[in-house]
């Protein structure tokens, strides 16, 4: 039967690969192609793995999905959901843009705030929404975050926050710039009271959000491969006319330069947050 040998696995690796991922199981299911390994991944498997590709690539995640991932089941209580930005500058097209984004994303604003338990530990939680104008910070985002830090101070709770943002929301002009100062002052008050703030920086965390509350945490974690920086890479390239290193502004680069504490893959995030929250409660 030597002629059937070609059907046998040539080595253990190939065999392992086939058993781990039978090709037929997901036939017909919707797939997503990973921008990193370029392989199609069935959506069901992606969802079961918190939107992380088997190659380790972390896909963008909606705020509500993150809350479901990080908070203990049924513990999240949303706060300040009634707040939303107006159009103070009467910026052309902004009102319509907000309407469109609100119905497309299902969120009223680019951050979701509330209280939750993580591994049984009570905390305030904020999660920014990448599908709402790329998490840009306008008056409402600044106000919600400020109120959350004030609430956490009043109730002596730690704050856990997931950042994702393109920066300040230019359609709100100076008032969005002022949110950087406002949120920073609220973080400072919370911090001066001896309370813990942990931030998880996700892809991308840039501009005025990096230059304010996102970078002001006691412990800074980042998801693998996340872009974290102040100025946009394309702008830097155009301004300096230099080719940027491949890993420029990636979480690993930022870690190497000493600006974050650790890289936290999604799979272990909740356990890590729980451990840190417990340690600070005991201290």
């Amino acid at each position: 039967m030597a002629f059937l040998n070609f059907l046998q696995p040539k080595n253990a690796l190939e065999e392992g690969g086939r058993t781990a991922a039978p090709i037929h199981e997901d036939a017909g299911e919707p797939e997503k192609t990973c921008p990193n390994c370029h392989k199609p991944i069935p959506l069901s498997r992606l969802w079961a793995n918190h939107l992380v590709c088997p190659c380790g690539y972390h896909f963008r995640m909606k705020a509500r999905q993150r809350i479901a991932m990080a908070a203990d089941k049924g513990t999240f209580r949303e706060l300040f959901s009634e707040l939303r930005s107006g159009n103070p500058l009467e910026f052309p097209g902004y009102g319509e843009k907000l309407d469109t984004v609100r119905s497309a994303s299902g969120e009223a604003e680019a951050v979701v705030c509330g209280t939750a338990a993580i591994g049984g530990e009570a905390c305030c939680l904020f999660v920014m929404e990448p599908y709402f104008m790329m998490g840009s910070m306008g008056s409402a985002v600044g106000e919600k975050l400020t109120r959350l830090f004030e609430y956490a101070l009043e109730h002596r709770l730690p704050v856990v926050g997931y950042a994702v943002s393109g920066g300040a929301r230019m359609q709100e002009g100076l008032l969005s710039l002022m949110q950087m100062a406002k949120t920073s002052a609220a973080v400072k008050r919370h911090s001066d009271a001896g309370l813990l703030y942990i931030a998880v920086l996700t892809d991308p965390t840039t501009g005025g959000v990096t230059a304010s509350f996102a970078m002001e945490a006691d412990i800074l974690l980042a998801e693998p491969g996340a872009t974290i920086g102040f100025a946009g890479a394309r702008v830097i390239e155009q301004t300096t006319r230099k080719t940027l290193p491949k890993e420029f502004q990636k979480a690993e680069f930022v870690l190497q330069h000493g600006f974050i504490d650790s890289i936290a893959p999604r799979s272990g995030q909740k356990a890590l947050l729980t451990r840190l929250l417990r340690l600070h409660k005991g201290g």
């Binding site: 990096t210 230059a211 304010s212």
Partner: peptide, 21 residues
């Protein structure tokens, strides 16, 4: 604020954030 490779390597965002705080 300066928009450059060195500025990013040395934490432009962190430096501004710390001042605000």
């Amino acid at each position: 604020a300066c928009c450059g490779i060195g500025a990013e390597e040395r934490g432009q965002g962190q430096a501004i954030a710390e001042n605000l705080m």
